[in-house]
Amino acid sequence: MFFVFAALADFILFVLHVAAIFIGEPAYLFLRAGKVMAEADARGETWPAILTGAISTVFLAWAVISFWAGTNKPFARWARYLMIGIGIVFLLRGGVIVLQLGGMAQFSDGEAPQMRDFIFSVSALFIGLLHLAAVFKDKPR
């Protein structure tokens, strides 16, 4: 069941990033992509959408890997190894909370962390642990 939840978390991140492409500047600012990216989107430049599309594609691939890893299909064992890496990436992203809490993290715009930044970090920690729990605690079906 953890495999499905991990895949669902990855898929939700995919959907949120695709939505950010369509929402544009306000979404980039809210998600802390930076003022440079938000202003470029507001000017009609395509690179913010391309970059966000690439990131969302990674999340979609991770969702497929996480779902596949929970099966007994060919290469599922290799998908489980990939899930360990995915979990570590999420834990590293979430680990930024240590810098945020210590007041040592600033964003590209020189802004101090806000409440949503702590929520993003805790969410990343949770999703990383979810991926690792799937691999080490759950049985493939």
Rank of each mutant, 00 (worst) to 15 (best):
K35G: 08
A61W: 03
T52N: 13
P26F: 08
G34R: 08
L29R: 15
R32D: 03
K35T: 11
R43T: 05
P48A: 04
A33G: 15
L60N: 02
L31E: 13
R32L: 06
P48W: 07
A61M: 10
M37K: 09
I55K: 03
D41W: 04
A49V: 00
P48F: 04
G44S: 07
K35C: 00
A38V: 07
L51G: 04
T52P: 03
E39W: 04
D41A: 14
L60M: 13
V36S: 15
V58F: 03
V36H: 14
E39H: 12
F30C: 02
R32N: 12
E39T: 12
T52D: 06
T52Q: 14
A63E: 06
F59V: 00
T52E: 09
K35V: 02
A38H: 09
M37L: 14
A49G: 09
D41P: 01
G53N: 03
I50P: 00
I55A: 11
L31K: 12
V36L: 15
S56W: 04
A49K: 15
E45F: 09
W62H: 01
G44P: 02
A38S: 13
A27Q: 11
T57V: 03
F30K: 13
I55H: 00
A54P: 00
A61N: 07
G53V: 02
R32F: 09
W62T: 05
G53F: 02
E25S: 13
V58T: 06
T52F: 10
P48M: 01
A49Q: 14
A27F: 08
S56H: 01
K35Y: 05
T46N: 11
V58G: 01
A42M: 01
A63S: 15
L29M: 14
L31F: 15
W62L: 07
P48G: 03
A40E: 10
A42F: 03
W62K: 06
L51P: 00
G44H: 09
L31T: 14
A42Q: 11
A54M: 12
A54H: 06
A38K: 03
Y28I: 07
A63R: 02
A42Y: 02
P26Q: 11
F30E: 11
A63N: 03
A27D: 08
L29I: 13
A63W: 04
E25M: 13
A42G: 00
Y28L: 04
E39D: 15
M37P: 04
G53A: 07
P48R: 01
L29Y: 06
R32T: 10
I50K: 12
W47L: 09
T57E: 04
A49L: 00
T46P: 00
T57S: 12
L51R: 12
A27G: 11
A27M: 07
S56K: 05
A61E: 04
R43V: 05
W47K: 08
L60H: 07
A38D: 06
A40H: 08
I50M: 14
F30G: 08
A33Q: 10
V36Y: 12
A42C: 00
P48I: 02
G44N: 06
I50V: 15
G53I: 05
A33I: 04
Y28T: 08
A42R: 12
V36R: 15
W47A: 03
P26T: 12
I50R: 15
L51H: 08
K35F: 02
E45R: 12
I50W: 10
P48E: 04
I50S: 07
E39K: 11
R32I: 06
V36C: 02
L60E: 03
L60T: 06
T46E: 09
T52I: 15
M37F: 13
M37V: 14
A63L: 01
L60V: 05
